[in-house]
């Protein structure tokens, strides 16, 4: 069975996979940064008392979480040009991933902030800190620790989701697999190889999660 499996072709295509891998890594990284920005803004809006900020944030988060990423991607890819915005595929892809992941990250950060005991806020209020001071000095540093593991989980999801960008012809990792599959009609070789690379990325991020939790565990202590 394995005699039909062409390792030679994989080796031959390795530079293409390498490029795809590099593209996947940096576009995921960029999208994650974008998602963090979107998430922080949404979360800040969502934590306001005023209905005016909260309602749009909630509506956005629900809309993103309720619809498939592929639909969102196609909406941006095919819809935006109709509205007069013609953007390169790569930009559309990063935008879609940022906007999508941002909604999930907003909820992760909100959960982190709400997990901080009320007494922490009361202690900082009682010492005369302003809202900004107590967020910056007391709440966010503690919420940050709680948030790191789920954020890395979201990063792993984002890396896998980036495979969808192959559908709008972004030359990332999955696209490389598709090319091998269609050029040489070797789908097994193509997709096993990209699976191996995704696994590699997964272990890198997981390793980062382990290292960070160990680092967070030693800096300071549990509540």
């Amino acid at each position: 069975m394995l005699e039909n499996f062409s390792f030679r072709t994989i080796v031959e295509y390795l530079p293409l996979f390498g490029q795809g891998l590099v593209t996947t890594v940096w576009l995921s990284a960029l999208s994650f940064v974008g998602a963090l920005v979107v998430g922080i803004v949404l979360c800040a809006m969502n934590l306001q008392r005023g209905w005016l900020f909260r309602a749009p944030a909630k509506a956005y988060i629900d809309a993103v979480r309720a619809t498939p990423l592929l639909a969102q991607l196609y909406f941006l890819y095919f819809g935006l040009p109709r509205l007069g915005f013609v953007l390169p595929e790569l930009v559309v892809g990063i935008l879609a991933l940022s906007l999508n992941s941002g909604a999930y990250i907003a909820e992760i950060i909100r959960a982190g902030i709400l997990s901080i005991p009320r007494g922490q806020v009361e202690a900082s209020v009682a010492s005369g800190m302003t809202y900004v001071q107590r967020m910056r000095l007391v709440v966010l540093p503690q919420a940050f620790k709680v948030t790191i593991p789920p954020l890395l989980g979201q990063a792993i999801v984002l890396v896998k989701d980036s495979a969808l960008l192959s559908l709008i012809s972004v030359a990332e990792l999955t696209r490389a697999g598709q090319l091998l599959a269609s050029d040489r009609f070797m789908p097994a070789e193509g997709f096993v190889t990209i699976a191996a690379f995704y696994l590699l990325l997964y272990y890198c991020l997981k390793g980062l999660a382990v290292v960070s939790s160990r680092w967070l565990g030693s800096a300071g202590a549990r509540a």
């Binding site: 005991p117 007494g119 009361e122 202690a123 009682a126 010492s127």
Partner: peptide, 14 residues
């Protein structure tokens, strides 16, 4: 005004 709480409420990360 200093306020001392029943549950201390020290900042655990400090």
């Amino acid at each position: 005004i200093g306020f001392v709480f029943q549950s201390f409420n020290l900042y655990p990360h400090k």
